[in-house]
Design a protein around this nucleic acid. Structure first.
Lengths: 200, 200
DNA sequence: AATTTTATTCCGACCGTTCGGTCTGTTATT
DNA sequence: AATAACAGACCGAACGGTCGGAATAAAATT
């Protein structure tokens, strides 16, 4: 990909993440990139395609999962929990790298809503990502039960969902309360206590 | 308040809830109300003030709490949990009454983001509402512990937050997955299992 | 009670601005 | 010489908002 195009995409992503699709105008993008209208419409058909291509390149690369997250039967439930929190932390760092300092994580949710509205196809990708995350928790829970670390009279699906939902809720709340750092400490606290009561 | 103004506010709220602030144009509102530009700008200074006033009248009246939710020491933790779920259900029903059928609950979150952006003062109200909800859970948990229904070696604050975050996470997920009814069943499942493990 | 005056409510054509997008021309690359 | 990479003036449409006036209701005067 041409360096100019890459520059456009990165700058656009930053702005979309800060303000959302509708709030970002082409002239803002032109100004922010230091380029011209001509350059934009040379590389992209229209604003919507630019948005979609931007998402395709960067939005879905932000994921709390990496290669280390592949399930290893040796690793304990507790360690996976910590690993998960670390990855959330990394992901948040990645987002704030793109977005600079402003707008905290609010833009991330805004963008998810825009995705649902302007690029309904990507909605499936978000769905798939959620499914993947759920499958992760499912395996971790199963593993924990098999190893005798976690109580066995618990419904695996519900507990897997429990962790995922809890993470979503904490993230949502830390974003809306404007306390991005609360995400980690709160996640740590509530996960630890939950672990304490599901531990055999 | 004049019936016309009330009509404007209700119609506007419906549309804002469906599409978000920027996506709703004055002409759409004019058409939807069956009135005219003149009528709008007779009652409101500009679009933003209309938005703010609409929120003030309707958005903040939607709350999962009503008079029955005042803490009664006689009521068990379990019953409060059920009551809470019922109120969530009622709240969702209220929203869908306003919004008609479309747009599910996605619009609710979109509107919360718009609130944070266009009416930062209301951000405090959302905060206050969260604090209130948290205080509710806190009392319920304390009461549950005092009555010997809930394990006493649990941190009250964390557990109170736990329930609230969990609710947020389930709501967020059911909205994004486009399964509004999943909210109730999932909430029921995960709350029940959580209850099982915090029960003395 | 009838009539005039005043104020309110509402209409819709219209305004300036901004939006996404186009098009012609210039510069750099091959 | 030909093509790709940009620049930026420009366009029609749509935006939020204005304004003079018509319709209606309320108050005042006769």
């Amino acid at each position: 990909m041409s360096p100019t195009k890459e520059h456009i995409i990165l700058t656009s992503f930053r702005l979309f993440l800060q303000k959302g699709y509708k709030e970002v105008t082409m002239n803002m993008l032109v100004k922010a990139t230091g380029l011209s209208k001509g350059a934009f419409y040379h590389y992209f058909e229209n604003k919507e395609q630019l948005f979609v291509e931007t998402l395709d390149n960067l939005f879905f690369s932000i994921s709390p999962f990496n290669n280390e997250m592949i399930i290893n039967p040796e690793v304990s439930f507790f360690d996976y929990m910590q690993m998960y929190i670390d990855n959330i932390k990394k992901m948040a760092k990645t987002v704030s790298t793109y977005v600079g300092e402003e707008s905290s994580g609010m833009g991330y949710y805004r963008l998810m809503l825009d995705v649902a509205h302007y690029a309904p196809d990507f909605h499936k990708k978000i769905d798939a990502s959620n499914k993947y995350e759920l499958a992760f928790w499912r395996k971790v829970v199963e593993n924990g039960i098999r190893k005798g670390e976690v109580k066995e009279d618990l419904d695996v699906d519900i507990l897997a969902n429990h962790f995922q939902w809890l993470q979503d809720g904490v993230a949502l709340n830390s974003i809306f309360s404007g306390d991005p750092d609360g995400l980690y400490s709160n996640l740590d606290k509530v996960f630890s206590q939950l672990y304490k009561i599901i531990k055999k």
